[in-house]
Amino acid sequence: MRLLHILHNWRKRNRARLREYKLMFTALTRSPTAIAGLVLSMSFIILGIVGPYIAPYNPIEIDFEKMHELRLQPPSWEHPFGTDEFGRDLFSRVLCGARISLMVAIVVLSIAIPLGIVLGLIAGYFGGVVDEVIMRVTDVFLSFPGLILAIAFSAAFGASIWSAMAAIALVWWPPYVRVVRGQVLQIKESLFVEAAKALGLNPLKIMFRHILPNALTPVIVLATLDFGSVILVAAALSFIGLGAQPPTPEWGRLVADGRAYFPEKWWYVFFPGLAIFLTALGWNLLGDALRDVLDPRYRRRLEFKERRGR
């Protein structure tokens, strides 16, 4: 009884919020590209989690006895993606590669985004000298092409997947500072922020309750788009030998290894390449769709459309 009461209260309080989420979801499932993006990116995440458990073969160990017999087999029922030069199943290797890419993206973004948000908030809210210092440092990072800078860092740290992650994270935050600062500068001028100041709220509360939630939409969109880009850059680093080292089944690494046998043994390059492509595409489509869905005006229009349909 008591539980029911609590549940009832919760629903009453969150009706408006739930309606927004529901609308977001309907909006998302309305456009075909959004669905494609959602399916691709979600299956990437799921494969990243369960991949190693469902892989039919061990992705790393080499069966030296059968190595010669299994070497560079074309796709077949037993090996849907074919095999590599050591006779390992490429399907299993690509499947396990998803987890590495997922990990890279998560680690990089969970360093870059909070860093970018905090710096952007501080720079935008306080302005003046603080802003100048933060933005000039950011500009210095932005003035180098990200990939080149990542290559430099990665080379300096020594080639490994961890140094690649650190290198990417180190060059990935500046755009977030830019985006957040731009939003903050705009929102800071809104009357609701002035009203909050007139209430005597402290700057931290104003920043985190009033400014940040209104500044997040472009960050979410950018983060989704970046999920694909980070994977792409990580693959690129591995491709030129600075990221994951053999025998790690990283996608970029796989493409690099397969290059030696291209074009006769096309599947060695093709399937890992396809995985990279689909993942990047999926996140890109999802990011674009989110840009629309997160705009409340777009949702309103959709709500009307729904009502009319009924």
Partner: peptide, 17 residues
């Protein structure tokens, strides 16, 4: 001491109920 602003569209935080 409190203040009421001109534009009621910008004086309320759109993300708060």
């Amino acid at each position: 001491v409190q203040i009421v602003f001109q534009d009621p569209y910008s004086s309320l935080n759109p993300r708060m109920m």
